[in-house]
Nucleic acid binder design. Structure first.
Lengths: 200, 200
DNA sequence: ACCTCTTATTGAACGACTGTCAATAGGTAG
DNA sequence: CTACCTATTGACAGTCGTTCAATAAGAGGT
């Protein structure tokens, strides 16, 4: 991988190469093991060049995480037609399949977000908001999901539950099938909201 | 804070002092901002001494997180008598109050666990297992919660939801009262499990 | 083919931090 | 008061993030 000859790319190409490499490395290492040293060596460039394209290590990580989040949102876009319940099922399936297919990378995204950095957290929040806002949008007229603070809160909690369930199931399915899990995920939202609305 | 004179404590005392200081600092800084330098200066000792008591930075962090987790478990112990539903309510209230009172520290615990390190993750898992196992134990005879893989999975998800809701609510209550939140948390477990059992 | 100029790229240097270890000194037993 | 045990120190080596003046790749003009 060590490049003896200095190759000169256009800024756009180099930036792309470094971001792609960053996302790819995220599947093997965790976010804070993604050192400048490692990345420079793996890309066959000097450490200095990274600072030319991304101001700091944090900025680079932020760009990598943002790209990973964009991938997630793009690849789990819900279908535009069909019944609300059906679309929710398809959404859940897409999310589940994405996480299973990109397990390590997704884990790095989640960990990175939780790891304190405000910028990373914001990207993560944004991605999850994009996923849950779809649900409110899918429910035209807010018949299933009235838009109250408590319901917003519960939908957010349901997102966290979904994430936890999918990540856990990926590691230990324990006999639960993919279809069962999707059914549980999609089928739990309505009872949760109803239970919330029953609160005095 | 700089100690001009070298004070010699018994190993037990020094260990205790350092751990306490570590937990206290966790309320201000995040886990990976808890450097050896900072801690040594704050404690008025040399960096070397920290390595005498804890083999490495990771070991020290692990000890600090373990202490924080033990605190959480001890302070949220459920009452031994009363109806199951009532005990669940009291448990939830204790958990909520603990998180609100120790918000920053609890956040550091959660972040630390998510941050990749296997040892930290294990401590966190252990703490959460202690919290959820209580629920299964409270439900004598497993009338509400049959002990199946799917139900185990959902209870785990419900834990994640609970954590998310409490942390979010602490920052943005949005008009939801403490009692409402506790009601939502405690009242959501049964519907969730029932919806799960309905899955074909 | 050669030259020129822009700018992508380098590598040395600095500071902050983790980790190691032989030397030092506090306190206690005798 | 002395001697010994060991808690504690401080200096040193290695790693990593970050900066910046110097270098050379490659395109465009002649």
């Amino acid at each position: 991988m060590t490049q003896s000859v200095r190759t000169r790319l256009s800024p756009a190409e180099r930036r792309e190469q470094l971001l792609d490499l960053g996302v790819r490395l995220l599947a093997t290492r965790s976010l804070d093991e993604l050192s400048i040293d490692l990345l420079a060596e793996e890309a066959g460039i000097s450490r200095g060049l990274l600072y030319h394209y991304f101001g700091s290590k944090h900025d680079f990580r932020e760009a990598v995480v943002r790209r990973a989040a964009d991938d997630l949102i793009a690849q789990t876009a819900p279908p535009v037609d069909g019944e609300p319940e059906e679309r929710l099922l398809v959404s859940m399936a897409a999310y589940l399949d994405y996480v299973v297919a990109n397990y390590e990378g997704y884990l790095s995204l989640v960990k990175g977000a939780a790891s304190g950095n405000a910028a990373l957290r914001a990207i993560y929040e944004e991605a999850r908001a994009a996923l849950t806002d779809r649900i409110f949008r899918e429910d035209a007229g807010n018949q299933i999901l009235p838009d109250t603070p408590a319901v917003r809160l519960v939908v957010r909690g349901w997102s966290a539950m979904t994430e936890e369930l999918v990540l856990t199931w990926k590691v230990e399915p324990n006999g639960v099938t993919r279809e069962e899990l999707i059914g549980i995920l999609a089928g739990s939202l309505r009872p949760l909201v109803e239970a919330t609305l029953l609160q005095p």
